[in-house]
Amino acid sequence: MNPFDYARAAGAAAAVTQVAASPRAKFLAGGTTLIDLMKLHVETPDTLVDIGRLPLDKVEAVAGGGLAVGANVRNSDLAYHDAVLARFPVLSEALLSGASPQLRNAATVGGNLLQRTRCPYFRDGVSPCNKRAPGSGCAALGGHNRGNAVLGGSESCIATSASDMCVAMAVLNVTIKTQGPKGERAIPFADFYLVPGETPERETVLDHGELIVGVEWPALPAGAKSHYLKVRDRASYQFALASAAVVLEVAGGVVTTARVALGGVATKPWRVPDAEKLLVGRKPTAEAFAAAAEVATKGAVPRTFNGFKVALVRRVIVRALETVAAG
């Protein structure tokens, strides 16, 4: 790690001021991404403002049955929260499928929203990587790209979004609350992440010094069921090869609400609105699910070693939908 100054934040506003004041300053929360990448010299902040003890640690009900969750709520605490277990199983399942108990005890909601890619060429510190060193090229395009994205990529970057939690949050219609140098914002989840395009170093719409203070989402439709399904080589402690978060409401024998988001295959948590539209109004049959899965992967660009993910994620979508439809 390069040398840096460490300070504990006195409060959210003070933290924002401290980080905003220095272009190389960063917020430190659970540290599971940032410290890892600092050891790899991929992240090189000169100042860390530790927000880990700010009291952004509440899970609170909001009117209408939604939840408001502080940015510092640990992944494990959120996963086992009664309201999440009871009403938003997709989120609990996604959180518990990620990393390990130790990492989930440290990782925070705010931090996980900003979890960075596992692309090996990003992490290695030396290979061409437009995300790490803009303009240097992308070693993954012609390299070992089994873990890379088939959706949302560009010729500049095919780095996969690594988070499981974010895939679930994509179908919960989460709003991300921030506090920054320019004031407070509420950013719809769908607007939060950027696809790489020609600027893969920009991953979100956050400004420098803008702090995520929490997330909030509304209740699911009354009859909706939700589920997260993740496929990987190892039975645990591995990032997704392909995953799907689904919300499905069936009334009168037809789908009335459908939300599907994909993980492990795309450059950001990947909602598939065309697939969702296709499902609404149709009977929840295997044929409908397969058709939706087909639409969900339209435009997928397979690379040398990740082509199987296109078929795999379709099957994951179908299985996830079948599971909630049967449940």
């Binding site: 430190l28 540290g31 599971t32 890892d36 530790d50 494990s76 130790q102 990492l103 005890n105 440290a106």
Partner: peptide, 27 residues
């Protein structure tokens, strides 16, 4: 591994298990 990938450094902080390698002492 020094990167939160093996768990050999697991300790209990505030009674909760965490990877000591990804935890700054100062924090």
């Amino acid at each position: 591994c020094d990167h939160g990938q093996c768990g050999a450094c697991t300790v209990l902080v505030d009674g909760r298990r965490v990877n000591a390698c990804l935890t700054l002492a100062a924090s």
